[in-house]
């Protein structure tokens, strides 16, 4: 069921490529231009007060200044550090534990109730504990990201391992493929599509949790910079919105990179072969 729940998420199906390309990108650029122009016009006409919401030009110029300063890149680096390490730890644990639990029916049924419960606990609830234990540090961010990523992913891994085709498993056994080799060559590839779906969600979740940990936990990074800018008063609002834009762009970038990596790693799988066939 989780397969169905997660399958459609986070991916806007690419439209049929080919003839409509010029039109599509023309339309998209037009929408962007129209939105930016509307933003500027509303500010210029005084419909949105400048002390609450900065004008487009002010925000873009703040973004330009930030891009040339070391503060922005240090913040991006700190945010990415928490994101990457937390994702690696949470994802690694999920794959190992999920595989072990998925391989035995009893272990699966024992674990799944606990996992389902922990999955529903908002990660925010863990934040105070992490703050008490580690303070506003990178460790705190990593722990939160790993926690948030682990539970949804471990379910996906369980489902993936359990979806293993019995014929493939028996064939591997007959051919004498066992132990670590069986895991790497048979079980993991068969679970890969499920893991990929879970990871795609995790990439976004990890970034959100990371930035929350900075925004309200005080760990250094984009979230902390947004808060600093907000607290400096209306004159810093363009900077605040510039950081918000950077956070969104970072999200798009990471999701895009994941899609690329997924296509590269999973090129052998049915779903991607189909996609390639359509694109060609």
């Amino acid at each position: 069921m989780a397969g169905a729940v997660l399958a459609g998420e986070g991916r806007l199906a690419p439209g049929a490529p080919g003839r409509g390309w010029g039109l599509r990108y023309g339309l998209r650029l037009a929408v962007l231009a129209a939105a930016l122009a509307l933003w500027q016009a509303l500010s210029a006409a005084g419909l949105i007060p400048g002390d609450e919401f900065p004008s487009m030009t002010a925000t873009v110029s703040a973004l330009g200044h930030l891009a040339m300063s070391a503060t922005l890149w240090a913040a991006v680096r700190d945010t990415l550090a928490g994101w990457a390490i937390g994702l690696a730890i949470g994802g690694g644990c999920a794959i190992v534990i999920g595989s072990l639990a998925g391989l035995s029916g009893f272990a699966y049924r024992s674990v799944i109730g606990v996992v389902e419960f922990f999955k529903t606990i908002p990660v925010i609830a863990i934040l105070p504990i992490a703050l008490v234990l580690w303070g506003a540090t990178l460790t705190m961010k990593i722990a939160l990201v790993a926690f948030a990523v682990f539970w949804p992913l471990v379910i996906q891994v369980c489902y993936g391992v359990r979806s293993l085709d019995p014929i493939a498993r028996d064939t591997a056994r007959v051919l004498g493929v066992r132990g670590a080799r069986e895991f790497l060559m048979v079980i993991l590839p068969s679970a890969a599509p499920f893991i990929a779906t879970g990871l795609r969600v995790s990439v976004a979740v990890a970034l959100i949790v990371d930035i929350v940990a900075e925004l309200i936990g005080g760990g250094s990074g984009l979230g902390a910079q947004i808060l600093v800018a907000e607290n400096s008063g209306p004159s810093a609002y363009p900077v605040m919105y510039a950081y918000i834009l950077v956070a969104g762009l970072l999200g798009v970038l990471l999701a895009g990179l994941f899609t690329l990596a997924e296509g590269w790693v999973m090129h052998w799988h049915e779903s991607h072969r189909m996609a390639a066939g359509h694109a060609g």
Binding site: R28, A204, L215, A247, G248
Partner: peptide, 20 residues
């Protein structure tokens, strides 16, 4: 077609940054 990349931008934008 015209809005889909921006919808995706808003989807992956970590919503808590909008709180301030």
């Amino acid at each position: 077609e015209a809005t889909s990349p921006y919808l995706y931008f808003l989807y992956v934008l970590p919503a808590p940054v909008l709180v301030p």
